[in-house]
């Protein structure tokens, strides 16, 4: 083998950079391999859910009630309905509370002790296990009203998503250029007018993204609704009665010894994963910052 020619780009000592280049290649390869590895659990979940959930999937699943144990046929329309109702209730409670709190702590009193307290508690709440939200709603709503109900489930979910909505809204408001606020105050707007006409509209896409994320989180949670809304074999007729939900249906049916119920649980998983994923994707598509 010929010795390498010395030229302008050679290192002064004449050594090759072979090992440096090799190490560079190796580490690059390692990063690629590890990042591909993270896809394995995600993709296998999706494949598993699709493979097991797809066979039973039909329109009947969405329109029919679950079968009695041991029987076949039917679907989980009531659980979808129940999940929608409870997510709706939780949004009704958490969105106004979260958005208005965020407006207060970011717009009106960014440095007050109240704001620091709210911010701190919200951050703590994000870390609270969802089962605790369920226990709290059980104690606060179920115990006092003596009913398992969609309301109780909605309250539990609301506690769960409140910090998400509050903190994403605060981030959204912080993202609004202070030049807009100055301009608005400069022409004689009140704080309320500035927030309502300038700040909130500008922050709306980011706030909606937070709300959508909260929706997908609430729709997928089992623990908060497990012993607040309980479960029901029937269609929801009132928000004051026990209510079925997709997540609890999966939990219940998956542990039954009947093959058909287990298949139903798989299909419900597929529906749930699809809904949650679609909400997430929609949130990012529709409300992605408009190119300006």
């Amino acid at each position: 083998m010929k010795p390498k020619p010395l030229h302008f780009f050679s290192s002064p000592k004449g050594e090759t950079s072979f090992f440096r280049l090799l190490r560079n290649r190796f580490l690059t390869g390692l990063c690629i391999a590890l990042s591909l590895l993270t896809l394995v659990p995600l993709i296998s979940i999706v494949i598993l859910v699709i493979r097991n959930g797809l066979p039973l999937l039909s329109m009947n699943l969405f329109s029919q009630l679950p079968p009695a144990p041991g029987l076949e046929g039917g679907g989980f329309g009531n659980a979808i309905m129940g999940t929608l109702v409870m997510v709706g209730i939780s949004l009704l409670l958490a969105v106004p509370l979260g958005v208005f709190s965020a407006v207060y702590i970011n717009e009106y009193a960014p440095v007050s002790p109240v704001s620091s307290a709210v911010r701190f508690v919200a951050k703590l709440l994000t870390g609270i296990p969802s089962i605790i939200c369920g226990v709290f709603a059980f104690a606060a709503v179920v115990m006092t009203s003596h009913h398992f109900s969609a309301i109780a489930g909605g309250v539990a979910l609301a506690i769960l998503i409140l910090p998400i909505i509050l903190l994403t809204t605060e981030q959204a408001l912080m993202g609004v250029s202070s030049a807009y606020r100055e301009a608005s105050f400069g022409v004689g707007a009140t704080a309320f007018q500035t927030i309502w006409r300038i700040v909130l509209p500008d922050a709306m896409p980011a706030i909606m993204t937070g709300v959508m994320l909260a929706v997908s989180r609430a729709a997928g949670e089992t623990a908060p609704v497990l012993f607040t809304a309980l479960f029901s074999q029937n269609w929801i007729t009132s928000v004051l009665e026990p209510t079925a939900s997709l997540s609890v249906l999966i939990y219940n049916f998956a542990s039954l010894p009947y093959a058909y119920h287990i298949k139903l649980a798989w299909s419900a998983s597929l529906v749930l994963v699809t809904v949650v994923t679609m909400t997430n994707i929609l949130a990012q598509l529709i409300f992605s910052p408009k190119h300006r």
């Binding site: 250029s177 030049a179 807009y180 100055e182 301009a183 608005s184 105050f185 400069g186 022409v187 004689g188 707007a189 009140t190 007018q193 006409r197 300038i198 500008d202 300006r292």
Partner: peptide, 28 residues
């Protein structure tokens, strides 16, 4: 502030139409 207009260092039109930008002081 309505009697004293202010122009800032960095131009800061609202993210609205030209028309709405000028109408804003009237609307509020």
């Amino acid at each position: 502030r309505r009697r004293i207009g202010m122009v800032f260092q960095k131009s800061n039109p609202f993210p609205m139409s030209i028309y709405e930008n000028i109408v804003y002081p009237l609307r509020i």
